[in-house]
Design a protein around this nucleic acid. Structure first.
Length: 442
RNA sequence: GACCCCAUGGAGUAGCGGUUAGCUCACCACCCUUUCACGGUGGUUGCACGGGUUCGAAUCCCGUUGGGGUCGCCA
Protein backbone atom coordinates (compact mmCIF):
# COMPACT_ATOMS: atom_id res chain seq x y z
CA UNK A 1 0.00 0.00 0.00
CA UNK A 2 1.35 3.41 -0.95
CA UNK A 3 1.55 6.34 1.43
CA UNK A 4 -1.32 8.15 -0.24
CA UNK A 5 -4.23 8.76 2.11
CA UNK A 6 -7.34 10.49 0.84
CA UNK A 7 -10.69 10.98 2.44
CA UNK A 8 -14.31 11.67 1.72
CA UNK A 9 -15.82 13.76 4.47
CA UNK A 10 -19.53 14.21 3.89
CA UNK A 11 -21.91 15.97 6.17
CA UNK A 12 -25.07 13.99 6.92
CA UNK A 13 -27.64 16.17 5.21
CA UNK A 14 -30.23 13.51 4.55
CA UNK A 15 -29.08 12.67 1.06
CA UNK A 16 -25.93 11.85 -0.86
CA UNK A 17 -25.54 14.69 -3.30
CA UNK A 18 -24.51 13.86 -6.85
CA UNK A 19 -21.61 16.28 -6.52
CA UNK A 20 -20.55 14.67 -3.26
CA UNK A 21 -20.77 11.28 -4.87
CA UNK A 22 -18.51 12.48 -7.65
CA UNK A 23 -16.04 13.83 -5.10
CA UNK A 24 -16.13 10.48 -3.32
CA UNK A 25 -15.62 8.72 -6.64
CA UNK A 26 -12.57 10.79 -7.54
CA UNK A 27 -11.04 10.23 -4.12
CA UNK A 28 -11.74 6.53 -4.43
CA UNK A 29 -10.27 6.41 -7.93
CA UNK A 30 -7.15 8.17 -6.80
CA UNK A 31 -6.74 5.87 -3.82
CA UNK A 32 -7.19 2.80 -5.97
CA UNK A 33 -4.95 4.17 -8.70
CA UNK A 34 -2.12 4.86 -6.27
CA UNK A 35 -2.72 1.88 -4.08
CA UNK A 36 -3.40 4.26 -1.22
CA UNK A 37 -5.98 4.42 1.54
CA UNK A 38 -9.49 5.78 1.21
CA UNK A 39 -10.84 7.13 4.48
CA UNK A 40 -14.47 7.91 5.25
CA UNK A 41 -15.09 10.53 7.88
CA UNK A 42 -18.45 11.90 8.90
CA UNK A 43 -18.53 15.65 9.41
CA UNK A 44 -21.43 15.82 11.79
CA UNK A 45 -20.41 18.79 13.89
CA UNK A 46 -23.77 20.34 13.20
CA UNK A 47 -25.82 18.46 15.75
CA UNK A 48 -29.10 19.20 14.00
CA UNK A 49 -28.04 17.16 11.00
CA UNK A 50 -26.56 14.30 12.89
CA UNK A 51 -29.16 11.58 12.68
CA UNK A 52 -28.48 7.87 12.19
CA UNK A 53 -30.78 7.89 9.16
CA UNK A 54 -28.84 10.65 7.46
CA UNK A 55 -25.58 8.81 8.03
CA UNK A 56 -27.08 5.56 6.77
CA UNK A 57 -28.01 7.26 3.52
CA UNK A 58 -24.35 8.09 2.93
CA UNK A 59 -23.26 4.53 3.55
CA UNK A 60 -25.98 3.17 1.29
CA UNK A 61 -25.14 5.55 -1.53
CA UNK A 62 -21.42 4.84 -1.49
CA UNK A 63 -21.98 1.12 -1.32
CA UNK A 64 -24.48 1.25 -4.14
CA UNK A 65 -21.89 2.98 -6.31
CA UNK A 66 -19.36 0.37 -5.36
CA UNK A 67 -17.07 2.83 -3.60
CA UNK A 68 -15.56 0.86 -0.76
CA UNK A 69 -13.45 2.55 1.87
CA UNK A 70 -10.51 1.27 3.87
CA UNK A 71 -10.94 3.27 7.04
CA UNK A 72 -13.81 4.73 8.95
CA UNK A 73 -17.23 3.58 10.09
CA UNK A 74 -18.19 0.63 7.94
CA UNK A 75 -21.90 1.18 8.10
CA UNK A 76 -22.67 -1.98 10.01
CA UNK A 77 -21.71 -0.57 13.38
CA UNK A 78 -18.08 -1.57 13.14
CA UNK A 79 -15.15 0.73 12.55
CA UNK A 80 -11.87 0.08 10.79
CA UNK A 81 -8.70 2.14 11.30
CA UNK A 82 -6.62 3.49 14.16
CA UNK A 83 -7.11 7.19 13.44
CA UNK A 84 -10.62 7.40 14.80
CA UNK A 85 -13.10 8.26 15.98
CA UNK A 86 -14.32 8.97 12.46
CA UNK A 87 -17.35 10.93 13.55
CA UNK A 88 -16.47 14.52 14.26
CA UNK A 89 -19.11 14.66 16.94
CA UNK A 90 -16.92 12.27 18.92
CA UNK A 91 -13.74 14.29 18.61
CA UNK A 92 -14.59 17.35 20.67
CA UNK A 93 -11.67 16.97 23.07
CA UNK A 94 -9.21 16.76 20.19
CA UNK A 95 -10.45 20.01 18.71
CA UNK A 96 -10.44 21.68 22.13
CA UNK A 97 -6.82 20.69 22.54
CA UNK A 98 -5.85 22.29 19.25
CA UNK A 99 -7.78 25.44 20.03
CA UNK A 100 -6.04 25.59 23.39
CA UNK A 101 -2.71 25.22 21.68
CA UNK A 102 -3.36 28.15 19.37
CA UNK A 103 -4.61 30.19 22.28
CA UNK A 104 -1.56 29.50 24.41
CA UNK A 105 0.77 30.34 21.56
CA UNK A 106 -0.98 33.61 20.93
CA UNK A 107 -2.13 32.52 17.48
CA UNK A 108 -5.77 32.77 18.47
CA UNK A 109 -7.68 34.95 20.88
CA UNK A 110 -11.03 35.13 22.59
CA UNK A 111 -13.59 37.43 21.12
CA UNK A 112 -16.90 37.88 22.93
CA UNK A 113 -16.75 34.28 24.10
CA UNK A 114 -15.82 32.81 20.75
CA UNK A 115 -12.27 32.05 19.64
CA UNK A 116 -10.75 33.66 16.59
CA UNK A 117 -7.67 32.52 14.72
CA UNK A 118 -5.30 35.20 13.49
CA UNK A 119 -5.05 34.95 9.75
CA UNK A 120 -1.52 35.98 8.70
CA UNK A 121 -1.87 39.16 6.67
CA UNK A 122 0.56 38.02 4.03
CA UNK A 123 0.15 36.79 0.45
CA UNK A 124 0.08 33.06 -0.03
CA UNK A 125 0.13 30.68 -2.96
CA UNK A 126 -1.96 27.54 -3.17
CA UNK A 127 -0.24 24.90 -5.24
CA UNK A 128 -3.15 22.89 -6.56
CA UNK A 129 -2.68 19.69 -8.52
CA UNK A 130 -5.57 20.51 -10.80
CA UNK A 131 -5.80 24.29 -10.79
CA UNK A 132 -2.10 25.08 -10.66
CA UNK A 133 -0.63 27.92 -8.60
CA UNK A 134 -3.23 30.29 -7.25
CA UNK A 135 -2.24 33.46 -5.46
CA UNK A 136 -4.22 35.00 -2.65
CA UNK A 137 -3.55 38.39 -1.21
CA UNK A 138 -4.87 37.83 2.35
CA UNK A 139 -3.76 41.25 3.56
CA UNK A 140 -7.36 42.26 4.07
CA UNK A 141 -8.68 38.91 5.25
CA UNK A 142 -10.51 39.03 8.57
CA UNK A 143 -9.60 36.66 11.38
CA UNK A 144 -11.37 33.35 11.45
CA UNK A 145 -13.78 32.11 14.09
CA UNK A 146 -12.67 28.59 15.00
CA UNK A 147 -14.75 28.03 18.08
CA UNK A 148 -18.24 29.29 18.73
CA UNK A 149 -19.48 31.04 21.81
CA UNK A 150 -21.09 27.75 22.87
CA UNK A 151 -17.71 26.05 22.75
CA UNK A 152 -18.32 24.05 19.58
CA UNK A 153 -15.59 24.02 16.92
CA UNK A 154 -16.15 25.39 13.45
CA UNK A 155 -15.80 23.54 10.13
CA UNK A 156 -12.47 25.01 9.04
CA UNK A 157 -10.82 24.07 12.30
CA UNK A 158 -12.14 20.53 12.51
CA UNK A 159 -11.50 19.88 8.86
CA UNK A 160 -7.86 20.83 9.20
CA UNK A 161 -7.35 19.08 12.52
CA UNK A 162 -8.87 15.88 11.22
CA UNK A 163 -6.85 15.89 8.02
CA UNK A 164 -3.77 16.46 10.13
CA UNK A 165 -4.59 13.82 12.74
CA UNK A 166 -5.67 11.29 10.16
CA UNK A 167 -2.54 11.73 8.10
CA UNK A 168 -4.35 12.79 4.96
CA UNK A 169 -1.81 13.36 2.19
CA UNK A 170 -4.10 14.55 -0.60
CA UNK A 171 -7.24 16.58 -0.24
CA UNK A 172 -9.47 16.10 -3.26
CA UNK A 173 -12.57 18.21 -2.88
CA UNK A 174 -14.98 20.46 -4.70
CA UNK A 175 -13.80 23.71 -6.15
CA UNK A 176 -16.13 25.56 -3.83
CA UNK A 177 -13.38 25.06 -1.26
CA UNK A 178 -10.62 26.63 -3.30
CA UNK A 179 -11.20 30.03 -1.75
CA UNK A 180 -11.13 28.47 1.71
CA UNK A 181 -7.77 26.87 1.17
CA UNK A 182 -5.63 29.85 2.27
CA UNK A 183 -7.34 29.65 5.67
CA UNK A 184 -6.64 25.97 5.92
CA UNK A 185 -3.04 26.47 4.91
CA UNK A 186 -2.68 29.09 7.62
CA UNK A 187 -4.03 26.66 10.19
CA UNK A 188 -1.64 23.91 9.15
CA UNK A 189 1.20 26.38 9.38
CA UNK A 190 0.12 27.48 12.83
CA UNK A 191 0.14 23.86 13.95
CA UNK A 192 3.66 23.56 12.60
CA UNK A 193 2.94 20.76 10.15
CA UNK A 194 3.23 20.21 6.43
CA UNK A 195 -0.15 20.68 4.74
CA UNK A 196 -1.57 18.00 2.45
CA UNK A 197 -1.51 18.40 -1.31
CA UNK A 198 -4.68 19.90 -2.70
CA UNK A 199 -6.69 19.03 -5.77
CA UNK A 200 -9.89 21.00 -6.35
CA UNK A 201 -12.26 19.38 -8.79
CA UNK A 202 -14.83 21.31 -10.83
CA UNK A 203 -18.42 21.40 -9.70
CA UNK A 204 -21.48 19.77 -11.20
CA UNK A 205 -24.04 22.31 -12.33
CA UNK A 206 -27.71 22.06 -13.18
CA UNK A 207 -28.63 21.76 -16.87
CA UNK A 208 -29.25 25.51 -16.85
CA UNK A 209 -25.82 26.27 -15.46
CA UNK A 210 -26.86 27.18 -11.95
CA UNK A 211 -25.33 25.58 -8.92
CA UNK A 212 -26.84 22.23 -8.15
CA UNK A 213 -28.19 22.33 -4.65
CA UNK A 214 -29.71 19.47 -2.77
CA UNK A 215 -33.22 20.49 -3.61
CA UNK A 216 -32.65 20.39 -7.35
CA UNK A 217 -34.08 17.67 -9.55
CA UNK A 218 -31.63 14.83 -9.90
CA UNK A 219 -29.33 16.02 -7.14
CA UNK A 220 -29.66 12.99 -4.94
CA UNK A 221 -28.09 9.60 -5.59
CA UNK A 222 -31.15 8.16 -3.92
CA UNK A 223 -33.23 9.25 -6.91
CA UNK A 224 -31.20 7.09 -9.26
CA UNK A 225 -31.36 4.17 -6.90
CA UNK A 226 -35.12 4.52 -6.76
CA UNK A 227 -35.54 4.94 -10.49
CA UNK A 228 -33.81 1.69 -11.21
CA UNK A 229 -30.55 2.98 -12.64
CA UNK A 230 -27.60 0.64 -12.84
CA UNK A 231 -24.93 1.74 -10.38
CA UNK A 232 -22.11 0.99 -12.81
CA UNK A 233 -23.76 3.29 -15.36
CA UNK A 234 -24.16 6.15 -12.90
CA UNK A 235 -20.58 5.69 -11.79
CA UNK A 236 -19.39 5.59 -15.40
CA UNK A 237 -21.30 8.78 -16.15
CA UNK A 238 -19.83 10.54 -13.14
CA UNK A 239 -16.33 9.56 -14.27
CA UNK A 240 -16.99 11.37 -17.53
CA UNK A 241 -17.79 14.65 -15.81
CA UNK A 242 -14.41 16.34 -15.67
CA UNK A 243 -12.38 13.34 -16.70
CA UNK A 244 -11.96 11.58 -20.01
CA UNK A 245 -10.11 8.52 -21.30
CA UNK A 246 -9.17 10.77 -24.23
CA UNK A 247 -9.77 8.15 -26.87
CA UNK A 248 -13.38 8.85 -27.76
CA UNK A 249 -14.89 6.13 -25.64
CA UNK A 250 -17.81 6.69 -23.33
CA UNK A 251 -18.51 3.25 -21.95
CA UNK A 252 -15.46 2.34 -19.98
CA UNK A 253 -14.84 -0.33 -17.42
CA UNK A 254 -14.08 0.94 -13.94
CA UNK A 255 -10.91 -1.12 -13.73
CA UNK A 256 -9.57 0.74 -16.70
CA UNK A 257 -10.60 4.07 -15.23
CA UNK A 258 -8.64 3.23 -12.09
CA UNK A 259 -5.67 2.42 -14.22
CA UNK A 260 -5.79 5.64 -16.22
CA UNK A 261 -7.14 8.08 -13.66
CA UNK A 262 -4.88 10.82 -12.39
CA UNK A 263 -5.29 14.28 -10.95
CA UNK A 264 -3.44 16.60 -13.38
CA UNK A 265 -5.61 15.63 -16.32
CA UNK A 266 -8.87 16.48 -14.64
CA UNK A 267 -10.74 19.29 -16.34
CA UNK A 268 -10.81 22.67 -14.71
CA UNK A 269 -14.21 23.82 -15.86
CA UNK A 270 -17.53 23.03 -14.26
CA UNK A 271 -19.77 20.51 -16.00
CA UNK A 272 -23.52 20.46 -16.40
CA UNK A 273 -25.43 17.41 -15.46
CA UNK A 274 -27.10 15.81 -18.48
CA UNK A 275 -29.73 13.26 -17.51
CA UNK A 276 -30.20 12.43 -21.15
CA UNK A 277 -26.72 11.10 -21.52
CA UNK A 278 -26.95 9.21 -18.25
CA UNK A 279 -30.13 7.61 -19.54
CA UNK A 280 -28.39 6.58 -22.75
CA UNK A 281 -25.39 5.27 -20.86
CA UNK A 282 -27.65 3.31 -18.56
CA UNK A 283 -29.15 1.73 -21.64
CA UNK A 284 -25.71 0.63 -22.74
CA UNK A 285 -25.25 -1.20 -19.47
CA UNK A 286 -28.82 -2.43 -19.31
CA UNK A 287 -28.82 -4.01 -22.74
CA UNK A 288 -25.47 -5.68 -22.17
CA UNK A 289 -26.60 -7.22 -18.92
CA UNK A 290 -27.97 -10.75 -19.08
CA UNK A 291 -31.50 -11.65 -18.16
CA UNK A 292 -30.19 -13.25 -14.99
CA UNK A 293 -28.36 -10.09 -14.00
CA UNK A 294 -31.35 -7.87 -14.63
CA UNK A 295 -33.95 -10.11 -13.02
CA UNK A 296 -33.48 -9.26 -9.33
CA UNK A 297 -33.64 -5.52 -9.95
CA UNK A 298 -36.59 -6.00 -12.29
CA UNK A 299 -38.53 -7.92 -9.67
CA UNK A 300 -37.77 -5.30 -7.06
CA UNK A 301 -38.83 -2.43 -9.29
CA UNK A 302 -41.99 -4.18 -10.52
CA UNK A 303 -43.12 -5.27 -7.09
CA UNK A 304 -42.54 -1.81 -5.68
CA UNK A 305 -44.73 -0.46 -8.48
CA UNK A 306 -47.41 -3.03 -7.69
CA UNK A 307 -47.17 -4.45 -11.18
CA UNK A 308 -45.86 -7.83 -10.20
CA UNK A 309 -47.94 -9.86 -7.76
CA UNK A 310 -46.22 -11.61 -4.89
CA UNK A 311 -46.95 -15.07 -6.31
CA UNK A 312 -46.02 -14.60 -9.93
CA UNK A 313 -45.30 -17.35 -12.47
CA UNK A 314 -41.55 -17.38 -12.76
CA UNK A 315 -41.27 -18.80 -16.27
CA UNK A 316 -43.92 -16.45 -17.63
CA UNK A 317 -42.25 -13.49 -15.96
CA UNK A 318 -38.86 -14.36 -17.35
CA UNK A 319 -40.23 -14.79 -20.85
CA UNK A 320 -41.92 -11.40 -20.63
CA UNK A 321 -38.85 -9.70 -19.20
CA UNK A 322 -36.77 -11.23 -21.94
CA UNK A 323 -38.67 -9.63 -24.78
CA UNK A 324 -39.11 -6.29 -23.03
CA UNK A 325 -35.51 -5.98 -21.91
CA UNK A 326 -34.33 -5.57 -25.49
CA UNK A 327 -36.45 -2.48 -25.90
CA UNK A 328 -35.68 -0.34 -22.91
CA UNK A 329 -32.79 1.47 -21.30
CA UNK A 330 -33.78 1.64 -17.67
CA UNK A 331 -35.15 -0.83 -15.16
CA UNK A 332 -37.37 1.95 -13.88
CA UNK A 333 -39.20 1.92 -17.21
CA UNK A 334 -40.22 -1.67 -16.65
CA UNK A 335 -43.54 -1.05 -14.85
CA UNK A 336 -45.14 0.83 -17.72
CA UNK A 337 -43.75 -1.68 -20.19
CA UNK A 338 -44.88 -4.74 -18.33
CA UNK A 339 -48.05 -3.95 -16.40
CA UNK A 340 -50.35 -5.61 -18.97
CA UNK A 341 -48.60 -8.93 -18.63
CA UNK A 342 -50.05 -9.33 -15.18
CA UNK A 343 -53.58 -7.99 -15.45
CA UNK A 344 -56.45 -8.45 -17.86
CA UNK A 345 -58.34 -5.23 -17.16
CA UNK A 346 -55.70 -2.83 -18.46
CA UNK A 347 -56.92 0.34 -20.16
CA UNK A 348 -56.57 0.93 -23.88
CA UNK A 349 -54.54 3.99 -24.83
CA UNK A 350 -57.25 6.45 -26.03
CA UNK A 351 -55.13 8.04 -28.73
CA UNK A 352 -54.24 4.63 -30.12
CA UNK A 353 -57.88 3.52 -29.95
CA UNK A 354 -58.91 6.43 -32.15
CA UNK A 355 -56.22 5.66 -34.64
CA UNK A 356 -56.25 1.88 -34.67
CA UNK A 357 -59.68 0.62 -33.61
CA UNK A 358 -61.38 1.98 -36.69
CA UNK A 359 -64.15 -0.11 -38.27
CA UNK A 360 -61.57 -1.55 -40.65
CA UNK A 361 -59.12 -2.14 -37.86
CA UNK A 362 -61.69 -3.97 -35.76
CA UNK A 363 -62.77 -5.98 -38.77
CA UNK A 364 -59.16 -7.08 -39.20
CA UNK A 365 -58.88 -7.86 -35.54
CA UNK A 366 -61.95 -10.09 -35.74
CA UNK A 367 -60.58 -11.94 -38.73
CA UNK A 368 -57.25 -12.31 -37.05
CA UNK A 369 -58.77 -13.67 -33.89
CA UNK A 370 -60.76 -16.18 -35.86
CA UNK A 371 -57.64 -17.44 -37.58
CA UNK A 372 -55.49 -17.56 -34.47
CA UNK A 373 -58.20 -19.55 -32.72
CA UNK A 374 -57.61 -22.41 -35.13
CA UNK A 375 -53.88 -22.65 -34.42
CA UNK A 376 -52.41 -25.49 -32.45
CA UNK A 377 -48.89 -24.10 -32.31
CA UNK A 378 -48.54 -20.57 -30.91
CA UNK A 379 -44.87 -19.73 -31.33
CA UNK A 380 -43.64 -16.51 -32.89
CA UNK A 381 -42.68 -18.10 -36.21
CA UNK A 382 -46.08 -19.67 -36.67
CA UNK A 383 -47.75 -16.43 -35.67
CA UNK A 384 -45.71 -14.40 -38.09
CA UNK A 385 -46.54 -16.80 -40.88
CA UNK A 386 -50.24 -16.57 -40.14
CA UNK A 387 -50.24 -12.81 -39.95
CA UNK A 388 -48.59 -12.69 -43.34
CA UNK A 389 -50.90 -15.23 -44.88
CA UNK A 390 -53.94 -13.39 -43.63
CA UNK A 391 -52.56 -10.13 -44.94
CA UNK A 392 -51.97 -11.66 -48.36
CA UNK A 393 -55.40 -13.25 -48.34
CA UNK A 394 -57.07 -9.90 -47.76
CA UNK A 395 -54.72 -7.98 -50.04
CA UNK A 396 -53.37 -5.86 -47.21
CA UNK A 397 -49.99 -5.24 -45.66
CA UNK A 398 -49.35 -6.89 -42.36
CA UNK A 399 -49.38 -3.60 -40.43
CA UNK A 400 -53.19 -3.28 -40.41
CA UNK A 401 -53.29 -6.53 -38.45
CA UNK A 402 -50.29 -5.90 -36.26
CA UNK A 403 -51.50 -2.64 -34.79
CA UNK A 404 -54.98 -3.73 -33.72
CA UNK A 405 -53.46 -6.92 -32.30
CA UNK A 406 -50.96 -5.02 -30.22
CA UNK A 407 -53.50 -2.56 -28.92
CA UNK A 408 -55.97 -5.31 -28.10
CA UNK A 409 -53.48 -7.45 -26.24
CA UNK A 410 -51.46 -4.78 -24.45
CA UNK A 411 -53.52 -1.58 -24.50
CA UNK A 412 -50.53 0.22 -26.01
CA UNK A 413 -49.22 1.23 -29.39
CA UNK A 414 -45.62 0.48 -28.53
CA UNK A 415 -44.01 -2.55 -27.02
CA UNK A 416 -41.89 -5.60 -27.68
CA UNK A 417 -41.86 -7.57 -30.90
CA UNK A 418 -45.53 -8.45 -31.44
CA UNK A 419 -45.13 -12.05 -32.50
CA UNK A 420 -43.00 -12.71 -29.46
CA UNK A 421 -45.45 -10.84 -27.29
CA UNK A 422 -48.32 -13.07 -28.40
CA UNK A 423 -46.21 -16.15 -27.91
CA UNK A 424 -45.41 -15.13 -24.35
CA UNK A 425 -49.03 -14.24 -23.60
CA UNK A 426 -50.13 -17.57 -25.00
CA UNK A 427 -53.14 -18.51 -27.02
CA UNK A 428 -55.77 -18.27 -24.29
CA UNK A 429 -54.79 -14.82 -23.10
CA UNK A 430 -54.36 -13.55 -26.62
CA UNK A 431 -57.80 -14.67 -27.75
CA UNK A 432 -59.49 -13.48 -24.58
CA UNK A 433 -57.90 -10.06 -24.82
CA UNK A 434 -58.83 -9.68 -28.46
CA UNK A 435 -62.38 -10.64 -27.59
CA UNK A 436 -62.48 -8.04 -24.84
CA UNK A 437 -61.37 -5.35 -27.27
CA UNK A 438 -63.93 -6.46 -29.84
CA UNK A 439 -66.71 -6.53 -27.24
CA UNK A 440 -65.77 -3.10 -26.03
CA UNK A 441 -65.28 -1.29 -29.35
CA UNK A 442 -66.99 -3.15 -32.16
C1' G B 1 -19.15 44.63 -4.30
C1' A B 2 -14.09 42.31 -3.32
C1' C B 3 -11.27 38.01 -4.24
C1' C B 4 -10.70 33.18 -6.83
C1' C B 5 -11.76 29.67 -10.85
C1' C B 6 -13.57 28.71 -15.72
C1' A B 7 -14.76 29.55 -21.24
C1' U B 8 -14.48 24.20 -28.15
C1' G B 9 -21.88 23.16 -31.26
C1' G B 10 -27.93 22.62 -26.94
C1' A B 11 -24.92 18.98 -23.18
C1' G B 12 -20.20 16.11 -22.01
C1' U B 13 -15.47 16.12 -24.15
C1' A B 14 -10.64 15.34 -27.71
C1' G B 15 -7.24 18.97 -29.27
C1' C B 16 -1.94 21.02 -25.95
C1' G B 17 1.32 26.56 -32.63
C1' G B 18 0.17 24.28 -38.85
C1' U B 19 -6.27 19.29 -38.37
C1' U B 20 -11.31 19.48 -43.96
C1' A B 21 -11.63 21.18 -35.58
C1' G B 22 -12.52 14.52 -33.93
C1' C B 23 -15.97 11.63 -30.61
C1' U B 24 -20.56 10.75 -27.47
C1' C B 25 -25.59 12.37 -26.01
C1' A B 26 -29.61 15.20 -27.89
C1' C B 27 -31.88 16.96 -32.51
C1' C B 28 -33.27 16.36 -38.00
C1' A B 29 -33.52 13.32 -42.59
C1' C B 30 -33.23 8.73 -45.03
C1' C B 31 -32.71 3.27 -44.87
C1' C B 32 -34.16 -1.22 -42.25
C1' U B 33 -38.53 -2.81 -39.60
C1' U B 34 -45.10 -4.93 -37.57
C1' U B 35 -45.26 0.25 -34.21
C1' C B 36 -41.64 1.99 -30.80
C1' A B 37 -36.79 0.81 -30.09
C1' C B 38 -32.26 -1.21 -31.94
C1' G B 39 -29.01 -0.90 -36.03
C1' G B 40 -27.06 1.71 -40.49
C1' U B 41 -26.14 6.23 -43.46
C1' G B 42 -26.12 11.32 -43.80
C1' G B 43 -27.03 16.20 -41.78
C1' U B 44 -27.75 21.09 -38.72
C1' U B 45 -25.16 23.46 -34.72
C1' G B 46 -18.87 25.17 -32.08
C1' C B 47 -13.33 27.41 -30.87
C1' A B 48 -17.60 34.03 -26.44
C1' C B 49 -15.55 38.96 -28.09
C1' G B 50 -11.36 42.44 -28.80
C1' G B 51 -6.35 43.22 -28.86
C1' G B 52 -1.53 41.36 -29.09
C1' U B 53 2.92 37.41 -29.78
C1' U B 54 4.08 34.46 -34.26
C1' C B 55 5.37 33.09 -40.99
C1' G B 56 1.06 30.71 -38.72
C1' A B 57 -3.32 30.61 -33.42
C1' A B 58 -8.99 26.82 -30.62
C1' U B 59 -4.06 26.17 -28.71
C1' C B 60 0.55 31.42 -25.75
C1' C B 61 -0.22 36.71 -23.31
C1' C B 62 -3.53 40.93 -21.93
C1' G B 63 -8.31 43.03 -21.66
C1' U B 64 -13.73 42.68 -22.09
C1' U B 65 -17.99 39.89 -21.58
C1' G B 66 -20.38 35.70 -19.67
C1' G B 67 -20.85 31.61 -16.13
C1' G B 68 -19.48 29.44 -11.41
C1' G B 69 -17.37 29.73 -6.49
C1' U B 70 -15.78 32.09 -1.76
C1' C B 71 -16.30 36.09 1.44
C1' G B 72 -21.09 32.64 8.37
C1' C B 73 -20.19 31.71 15.53
C1' C B 74 -23.37 26.29 7.93
C1' A B 75 -20.58 22.24 6.32
Amino acid sequence: MSSVRVRFAPSPTGLLHIGGARTALFNWLYARHTGGTFVLRIEDTDAARNTPEAVAIIFAGLKWLGLDWNEGPMGDGTTVGDKGPYFQSQRRDIYARYVQKLLSEGKAYEFEGAVKFKIPKTPITVDDKICGQIHFDRTMDPDLVIQRKDGSPVFHLVNVVDDLEMGITDVIRGEDHLSNTPKHLALFEAFGVQPPRYAHIPLILNPNGSKMSKRDEGASIGEYMAKGYTPAAVRNYLCLLGWSPKDNREVIDIKEVIEKFDLPQINRSNARFDINKLYWLNGEYFSKATLEEVEPLAIEVLQRANVLPADFDRAYFRAALGIVKEKIKLAGDLPEWMDYFFKEDFAFDPAAVTKVFTPAGLENLAKLRERLATLTAFDSATLEQNFKELAALTSQKVGPFIHPARLATSGKSVGPSLYHLLEVLGKDRTLARMQRALDQYK
